[in-house]
Every structure is written in structure tokens, then in C-alpha cells.
């Protein structure tokens, strides 16, 4: 079985972003970038399927600027076999990403596509679902457990009320939730080995995909600040404040 994993280059999750002075976008100058945490979980899941003998090949794809190759190398160091970089400096929206992935799927014919449920920069939570629509493949989103057997994949999904399990025909798309697995750290020898693994590059143009944005970012701003609060010395004061000042209990 061949698995395609989509990894996105995003701001490191510990960084607190701020708008640029002109409010046109967030300021990403000199901030630490990393592989999207959910994508790291996707890579880990693919690697585990390979270690279990279920998968035979893992292809890691990233769409983005030149530097996105760093994230592909991370995926290769974690255990992916080869990479594909679709190079573009455009701000790629989920629909355009899904169209790009669809074009790659037509070439690669993977049996399973694993991606993150959400990129932690734009917080879209759309790409996997859109790819499902474009390829007519079933989707198992927000996965906390994935079991492949007999040409099907059973996906346990984290839903608002608890957990739901669906069974999907392959090829299928899985998007990862946080509890699917705990990603390993890449070892130094594996980081070295990853440098020698094959990494092909292409462009949205070559794949026949438009990068034109449908949704314009007009501005970004800080959310309203919360009024600074106070520290209370004891439980009695807290109860008194909640009853008589805030009037919430």
C-alpha cells in the first residue's frame, strides 16, 4: 500500500504572532517555522503503518515556498521514503491545495492519503474534506484511531459528542487529530539519511492548478484586549466578587 502524506510549513506553535504595522497580514519576519503539528502526526501514522507491514511506500508532499523543503526533509527524517515539493510563493488556499494534491494523486495513485485536520496558522480545517470532494474519495476526519484491513480503513473520529467510527473504502483520506499518536523525534542518523532521499520538485503551473486567491485578506488586527484582572487573596473574597461584583453566581 502506498501512502501520500501532506505536510505544511507553518509558524512554530509556541510563537505568538502579531499583525504587521500596516495590518495587512501577520508579521512572519524572523519567526521560527516548523512542520504543522497535525502533519507531523500524519507522518507518524504513515510510518507506523509501514513499520506494521501495511504500507510499502510513503510519499511526503508540501506545497509552498522554497523553504518548505525543510519540512519535507523533516518528514523524510521521520521515515517517509521520498518527497515532492510543489514550489510556489502564493498564499495557497485550501481549495487550491486540494486541487494540487488531486493532480499529484492522479500521478501517484496512493491508496491512502493522510493529512492534518487543521493548519495552525490559518485554522482552516478544510483541505482534506475538499480533496475528498475533488477525488470522490471517502474521508475520515479528526482521526484518533486508524485501522487498515481488507481494502478498507476504519477510522475512529473525535466528534463533539464523543467518538464515532466509520469504515471507508480505499483509496481514502484521513485527517489526523491530536490523539492519533505521539510523533517520534527524528534521530541524528535519520536526519543525515533524509538528506539523501529523493525529493522531486514541481510547480502548480506544471500541474495545471491556479493559485489565484478567492478570498482576499483585507486586514488582520489584534483581538480586543481583556481588561486586566485582579488577584484575590482567598476563597471568601473570590466568592464575594463573583456574587456581588461580577454577579455571575
Amino acid at each position: 500500500m502506498k501512502i501520500l502524506v501532506a505536510v505544511k510549513r507553518v509558524i512554530d506553535y509556541n510563537v505568538k504572532v502579531r499583525p504587521k504595522a500596516d495590518g495587512s497580514d501577520v508579521d512572519l519576519a524572523n519567526v521560527k517555522m516548523a512542520i504543522n503539528p497535525f502533519c507531523e502526526i500524519a507522518v507518524e501514522e504513515a510510518v507506523r503503518l509501514k513499520e506494521a507491514g501495511t504500507a510499502t511506500e510513503i510519499v511526503a508532499v508540501s506545497i509552498g515556498p522554497k523553504q518548505a523543503q525543510e519540512q519535507i526533509r523533516t518528514a523524510l527524517a521521520l521515515g517517509a521514503d521520498r518527497g515532492i515539493h510543489v514550489e510556489t510563493d502564493a498564499r495557497m488556499e485550501p481549495l487550491a491545495v486540494a486541487k494540487t494534491l488531486k493532480a499529484l494523486i492522479e500521478k501517484e495513485s496512493p491508496d491512502l492519503i493522510i493529512m492534518g485536520k487543521q493548519s495552525i496558522d490559518a485554522d482552516n480545517n478544510q483541505t482534506g474534506q475538499m480533496l475528498g470532494a475533488l477525488t470522490a474519495m471517502p474521508q475520515g476526519t479528526f482521526a484518533s484511531e486508524v485501522k487498515v484491513a481488507d481494502g478498507k480503513v476504519a477510522v475512529t473520529r473525535e466528534v463533539d459528542g464523543g467518538l464515532q467510527t466509520v469504515e471507508l473504502n480505499l483509496p481514502a483520506i484521513v485527517t489526523t487529530d491530536l490523539r492519533l499518536n505521539e510523533p517520534r523525534y527524528a534521530s541524528l542518523p535519520n536526519i543525515m539519511k533524509a538528506k539523501k532521499k529523493p525529493l522531486d520538485t514541481t510547480t502548480p503551473d506544471e500541474l495545471g492548478v491556479s493559485t489565484e486567491a478567492r478570498v482576499n485578506l483585507l486586514k488582520v488586527e489584534l483581538p480586543p484586549e481583556r481588561q486586566a484582572g485582579i488577584k484575590v487573596p482567598d476563597v471568601d473574597t473570590l466568592v464575594d466578587k463573583l456574587k456581588n461584583e461580577a454577579k455571575v453566581i
Binding site: 502579531r18 501577520v26 478570498v215 482576499n216 483585507l218 486586514k219 488582520v220 483581538p223
Partner: peptide
Amino acid sequence: PIYAGNVIATVQSS
């Protein structure tokens, strides 16, 4: 909200 609600984006759909 984007970036975990650290900023609020205003977006226009075409």
C-alpha cells in the same frame, strides 16, 4: 480568528 485567535482576520470572498 486565525493563529489560535491571536489575531482576527477580515476576509472578503469573491
